[in-house]
Design a protein around this nucleic acid. Structure first.
Length: 726
RNA sequence: GCCGACGUAGCUCAGCUGGUAGAGCAACGGUUUCGUAAACCGUAGGUCACGAGUUCGAAUCUCGUCGUCGGCUCCA
């Protein structure tokens, strides 16, 4: 209703920011409320608002009150709490900019100081409409213009629901609540930014100004929140990714197409090694597949019907023939001609030719003859486009055969169709199942330009993908095994908080967004729900966000500073195995269709490394560090360099990513540069160390640990890497 | 894709209301031989994102394109 009519977060907000405090002690209410991405929230759903959300929602009313004090003509739409604060959408000729914030905040403070009660009033529909018509809703007094958005919102309130207003001081708003008791309960707040948003998120609707702010019980919490944001800024993967030389995105290569520098590539190699070891031990087999495939593969998989807007447009291949190329390129240069007028002529030529050439004659030769039959004066006015259009318009006419049909190839957006083909390549018995195909496959998705965001949202990505083919009976055990793997990774990376978002389908969208298999949807969702319930795993259920081929689980993880990331995914697929006619021979000698689990515990390299950069603030553990060891000789005398180099060589012989700093900087300078690059272990080597066959160890973040025997240090480095010590 | 802001050397940034670019770090060349977060001197480096336009004159003003960022619709 009024203020919290919609509370949909942007994707970025979902992927990036979450406030940790609300979620501690297993309290998942914040996420429950925010996960309910419904168009309208029912009173029951609203009742689940947490304390902090009520406070923020109330802060939105205070914001509106303040804006009206300055600009009484302001028209308000919706003002819900969101994950880290609140906003209110306002329609106002004056463009509010951050310079106005001080003024608005001053008015808000007055309102909070006045400590007005949030008074709830239940009214009839007619009363509500009347108030709206005289502009009294989301207003301080009657106005000349009606409260247009509020009137629209009233229209959409189901007859069964009570309509209520909330009043604080002079301000009255259409609102279902709930609120805190008094404006004074909005302890500490701050306006953060202003953005534009369409009314109801529909671009056909007018654009509103969305004023964002955040609020907390007290100033301490507010300050903590901004300190967290500051910290997040310092850890921003785009900033650190550049500083630490992990990746770049180059305009000429293309937006959303990261290039991995050696340091980033080293991290990728480590992640792949980790995944390969883990998956091998869990009975996965590696497969490999190309980056492109023909249109028909994706028609079969369902990606083209259901997922097309996320795919790059196709590459069209045509049988190359010099005459065709010449024909087309000649006409492209000349004027246009609507070939339609000459259709009859073309058809007659074709008919004549079909007598000359026996069936099965090669297209090229036939086409040569065809082209030569076109009168010179006509050729000069034909364009490739017009000829193609003509041929396309003829559709089934045999003339169409003169132009080889376009052979379309798509960049793969998902690995599954390729893996299904691999499954189908060999006959399978029930004894083969579960069959697990794993691949760090590269996928390309056409994300809209506005979606791109550093490494977190890209157009080329390499996924820690695998497809598990299994029987329904095996589902529970295998699904749990997959979850075990997630938990193992979380532990390794020190991810303490996570949540699985279980996304189901919307029956109303069968055949559009979701494959039209109502029964299978029900079955697999039920099955998944039960397994989740039987496990210890935190999960919430979110309607209408499944994959097109089955229920989906998005795994959200919280970084060390408490920001939330959607990193991994886990999906149940009943649709594609059918579409690909995948079968296994069961005990009873009948052919059955397996189920498929898609899983990607480490998500994509791109997003996962983006997450890790923030999580570790670039201070990676030794096993993962791009540069594990840097040797810093004190001085450049030959014996010292020889000793240093022998250590370098020994480390490298054991696959340790080690470097040596032979620059002319003094030792402090060398240390400074190594620290800035967050090199994990620095081995400072001077004459004293050389004479004792020792090295002085300095660890990034720990400082100087003093001299130690050379062999001991090397053994410890190797052991730490082997164990993947934190 | 839409709305808004921004785009200066490899990096971080100066360059006021138009008078054809500047610093620090990095790089390169010297000197320095230094024990745990920056030794010193010098050299070189820019079609001021790209393309048009206004102007005697554009990094600066206008328009377009591309890109980045903040939002809006979607995913790993």
């Amino acid at each position: 209703m009024a203020c919290a009519e919609r509370s949909e977060m942007s994707y970025k907000e979902k992927a990036r920011i979450s406030f940790p405090k609300d979620l501690q002690n297993g309290n998942l209410k914040t996420t429950l409320w925010l996960a309910m991405a419904e168009d309208r929230k029912t009173p029951e759903m609203r009742a689940q608002m947490t304390e902090i959300e009520r406070l923020r929602h109330s802060a939105a009313h205070v914001l509106a009150t303040a804006i009206l004090k300055i600009w009484p003509e302001a028209q308000f739409a919706a003002g819900p709490p969101v994950e880290n604060g609140f906003y209110y959408d306002v329609d106002l000729p004056h463009r509010i900019s951050p310079e106005d914030f001080e003024k608005i905040e001053a008015e808000m403070k007055k309102e909070i100081k006045a400590n007005h009660t949030f008074e709830r009033m239940e009214v009839s529909r007619d009363e509500a409409l009347e108030m709206g018509k005289k502009g009294r809703l989301a207003a301080l007094s009657d106005r000349n213009d009606p409260s247009k958005f509020k009137l629209d919102i009233i229209e959409n309130i189901p007859a069964s629901e009570t309509i209520s207003f909330y009043r604080n001081g002079e301000f009255i708003d259409l609102c279902a609540g709930p609120h805190v008791m008094r404006t004074g309960n909005v302890g500490a707040f701050k306006l953060t930014h202003v953005a534009s948003a369409y009314y109801k998120g529909d671009e056909k609707n007018p654009q509103l100004q969305r004023i964002y702010g955040t609020a907390f019980k007290n100033k301490t919490q507010l300050d903590e929140y901004f300190a967290m944001l500051e910290e997040a800024k310092k850890r921003d993967h785009r900033k650190l990714g550049k500083e630490l030389e992990i990746y770049i995105i180059d305009d000429e290569v293309g937006p959303g197409l990261p290039l991995w520098l050696p340091r980033g590539a080293a991290m990728i190699e480590e992640l792949e090694k980790l995944a390969k070891e883990t998956e091998f031990a869990a009975g996965y087999q590696r497969v490999r597949s190309p980056h492109i495939a023909r249109e028909q593969l994706y028609l079969k998989s369902g990606h083209l019907p259901y997922y097309k807007e996320s795919m790059f447009p196709p590459m069209e291949l045509r049988e190359s023939h010099p005459i065709i190329e010449d024909f087309f390129s000649q006409f492209e240069k000349k004027g246009h001609l609507h070939l339609g007028e000459n259709e009859e002529l073309l058809i007659s030529i074709e008919e004549e030719l079909s007598d000359t050439f026996p069936k099965g004659a090669i297209i090229g030769a036939k086409l040569d003859a065809f082209l030569q039959k076109i009168p010179e004066e006509l050729r000069s006015r034909v364009t490739r486009a017009s000829l193609e259009k003509l041929v396309r318009d003829l559709e089934d006419h045999r003339l169409r055969k003169l132009i080889p049909p376009a052979d379309r190839y798509y960049l793969k957006a998902m690995n599954c169709p390729h893996h299904h083909k691999l499954f189908a390549a060999v006959p399978h018995s029930y004894r083969d199942l579960p069959l697990r195909f794993a691949e760090y496959g590269t996928c390309y998705r056409y994300e809209q330009s506005g979606e791109l965001f550093g490494l977190m949202r890209v157009r080329s990505m390499q996924m820690n993908d695998a497809h598990i083919y299994l029987t329904p009976e095996q589902f529970e055990a295998e699904f749990n095994a997959v979850n075990e793997m997630y938990l193992k990774y979380f532990k390794l990376f020190g991810i303490e908080k996570y949540l699985m978002r279980f996304s189901t389908h919307d029956p109303a969208k069968l055949g559009q967004k979701f494959v039209d298999e109502p029964e299978l949807w029900k079955q697999t969702e039920e099955m998944t729900r039960n397994v989740l319930k039987n496990s210890e795993i935190n999960f919430v259920e979110v309607p209408n966000e499944a994959a097109f081929y089955g229920p989906k689980i998005d795994v959200q993880a919280w970084s060390a500073i408490g920001r939330e990331f959607s990193i991994a995914t886990n999906q149940v697929d009943f649709a594609q195995p059918r579409r690909f006619e995948l079968v296994y021979k069961d005990k009873d000698n009948t052919e059955k269709t397996p189920l498929c689990i898609h899983r990607a515990p480490l998500g994509t390299h791109e997003r996962f490394i983006g997450f890790l950069i923030e999580h570790y603030a670039g201070n990676f553990p030794l096993w993962l560090a791009p540069e594990q060891v840097r040797i810093l000789p004190i001085g450049d005398e030959a014996p010292l360099l020889d000793y240093s180099t022998s250590i370098l060589n020994e480390l490298r012989a054991h696959q340790v990513r080690a470097e040596i700093d032979k620059s002319t900087d003094k030792i402090n300078g060398k240390i400074q540069r190594a620290e800035q690059m967050k090199v994990h272990t620095m081995l400072v080597i001077g004459n004293r160390d050389m004479e004792a066959n020792a090295v002085s160890v300095r660890i990034h973040g720990q400082g100087n640990l003093g001299a130690k025997p050379r062999d001991e240090v090397i053994a410890d480095i190797l052991q730490s890497i082997k164990e993947r010590r934190a």
